[in-house]
Design a protein around this nucleic acid. Structure first.
Lengths: 370, 370
DNA sequence: CTCGCATAGTACAACGTTGTATGGCAGGCG
DNA sequence: CGCCTGCCATACAACGTTGTACTATGCGAG
């Protein structure tokens, strides 16, 4: 049988409330008493009953993490980071998979399971900006991603426009002028695709390179296969290009296979850069240049401000919009000057991992916009 | 304010216990009473308080899933499957990451968090067969993986030996005689590497092919980079081979990059087959033949028998060892007769996914060994 | 000496639920 | 008519914890 406060109190010869006070570090406890209680706790290997505690206190010590699907690498790595960060803060994470389905996302916001968590970190995929009202919920909520802006909750996301511009500028600096895009969504203004495409266009404008719609490869989903398909269509269209900006790593890796299948060399014929800095991008052949969108930092920040909301005593302060820092990570797929092949082979032979070139300096730190 | 049984009882004009009885489908309730109660519940949008319920009942409705790391694709896909399966059974999954660290794995078995769950599905990586005693815990536990056999708990795993033999036989049927292995662990007897290597040797023996230790590529970790390194070493050693059996998909994909980098064609020069059937294996170039180890079935079975234990009224029945079904999935990386390239391109061009050839029939269904 | 105050500890109730025991009220049987 | 049985519903206690209110003691100041 597992020990309770009552058992501890009996052994220590005090009331159960005193034991509770010791556990919760209340003031006004004689050191000798405290000592006896702690010994009794150790003797019985007592651990507080979490159900009773949360019934009494209204707190569960868990936070929810709602995301589309763990089998998408980006979200698996995000979940990993959130769990580790939550652990550092002493809370537990309950993961919910939505499948990116709008109805499930909405349902989950008022699911009875919300009782099990003190707050929610929510990365929607099906929700749109018009659905912002659904986010008015009675518990702390931190939004991730690019589906909803200006909602009623704290929002942690990445500098999509700036980062995409930096990625494009990086290609331009390597002398590339005809930069194809893989993963565009037609007509989208917000959402990852819309924002990243905007950054791409800003970079072109700044460099005086005309925007050519023929260079856009469209695809709704962002799986590896979609990147491959979009690239095949680009190749079939006959449009000329010397670089590819894939709107995420998975797409880009799919596109790279098709390029290589077609006999093109990366980076000599076509340089490629992705977005997300998946673990996988360090191991592809060639290794993939990409944007580190600050996933670790997003996870850490989301957990931190969620816990701030949970622990806040004063009533609601206005929602915050927080943008993570990003970095351009230069690897073999955009290596510049001759010898790229050499370098590739050398680094590969050593079994090393990682960043061939220097990273561009970060463009901005974490900043609260409001 | 959120409604309680008390509020519902007041509106329906009954006692709170009657409301509780309605919710829990107790017998002996007049239809008219039930009707009134249900209406009151609907009116107040009442949901039972889960903390109170679990305090009272000792059940949480959650199960734990302990695994090394979500950012390893195999475990991300496993977690996905477990969560979906648990959902079908009406329970929630709490994921714990161990990092594959033995001490953390041991600690987790007696962590206070175990209170939050009614049982645990545990996939250890650091634990060894000598640690079986740690698995004697006071709650339902289902073990996954190949680290511990003959322990005191139910165990769900895959037919590593049979599946590895089938994979090797598949290569032999294609006329391959010099089959390299990537991912071997020196001297390991149990564990995924040890078992799969045994299957490999059984297949060789059965076909009368001598075992050549020079064909073994060793690597402790099973990341993509390790597969690449092991393959580089094999190539450097000058040993001749016409096929590669990678002990998991990630390793195999790493090895394939190195083969292609060396100018070898897959499957013409070297056929490759992996193990795990990761989503990624459907999208590689060429698509990767592999073993479907029955991950979905393992997840489903683990959840099911864990819930059986949780709901069991009778005292402990003896531990069960359950082996999932497997399938050989034949894709481009082991396509036989000329035209493989054609087929590859065709399937690729159509943007299709999946299994180029027919799957071998399953070797065995889910079976309880004891 | 009494008052006020800080310290140290306790008793009780409450969080919301469910198991157990119990109470009426029919109807059927001796 | 009294008793038992089955049906329906209720009251009460309990799960283990913590907040509130309270008592008791010691100590310095008025």
């Amino acid at each position: 049988m597992v020990a309770t406060l009552h058992d501890v109190a009996q052994i220590a010869g005090v009331s159960i409330k005193t034991v509770s006070n010791v556990i919760n570090d209340h003031p006004h406890i004689r050191p000798a008493t405290k000592q006896r209680v702690l010994e009794a706790i150790a003797e019985l290997d007592y651990h507080p009953n979490l159900s009773a505690r949360s019934l009494r206190s209204g707190r569960t010590g868990m936070i929810g993490l709602a995301l589309p699907e763990l089998s998408l690498s980006y979200f698996a790595e995000l979940a990993d980071a959130v769990i580790r960060s939550a652990e550092r803060h002493g809370v537990t994470v309950l993961i919910e998979q939505t499948g990116g389905d709008r109805d499930r996302e909405i349902g989950l916001l008022s699911s009875p399971r919300r009782q099990l968590t003190d707050g929610l970190i929510f990365s929607p995929l099906g929700l749109g900006n018009d659905d912002a009202d659904f986010l008015k919920v009675g518990y702390p909520l931190v939004l991730l991603g690019e589906r909803v802006f200006g909602g009623p909750t704290d929002h942690v996301t990445m500098r999509n426009v700036d980062a995409a511009r930096a990625a494009t500028e990086h290609l331009i600096r390597q002398g590339r002028r005809r930069i194809a895009v893989v993963g565009a969504h037609d007509g989208e203004v917000i959402g990852s695709a819309g924002l990243r495409l905007r950054g791409y266009r800003e970079a072109l404008d700044a460099a005086g390179i005309p925007f050519d719609p023929a260079l856009l490869g469209f695809t709704t989903l962002w799986h590896r296969s979609n990147g491959a398909t979009a690239m095949r269509e680009l190749l079939a269209s006959g449009v000329q290009f010397d670089a590819v900006f894939g709107l995420n790593d998975t797409l880009t890796l799919g596109a790279m296979r098709v390029l290589q299948e077609a006999g093109l060399h990366i980076p000599e014929d076509v340089a490629t850069i992705g977005f997300d800095d998946l673990d996988e991008a360090q191991y592809s052949l060639p290794t993939l240049s990409t944007i580190d969108p600050g996933r670790e930092e997003i996870a850490e920040t989301a957990v931190r401000i969620l816990l701030e909301r949970i622990n806040a005593t004063d009533p609601a302060s206005p929602p915050r919009e927080i943008l993570a820092d990003f970095r351009v990570i230069e690897r073999e797929s955009t290596a510049t000057h001759g010898g790229a092949g050499e370098r590739m082979r050398a680094s590969a032979a050593a079994g090393t991992v990682g960043e061939t070139g220097a990273s561009a300096p970060a463009r901005a730190g974490v900043t609260a916009l409001s």
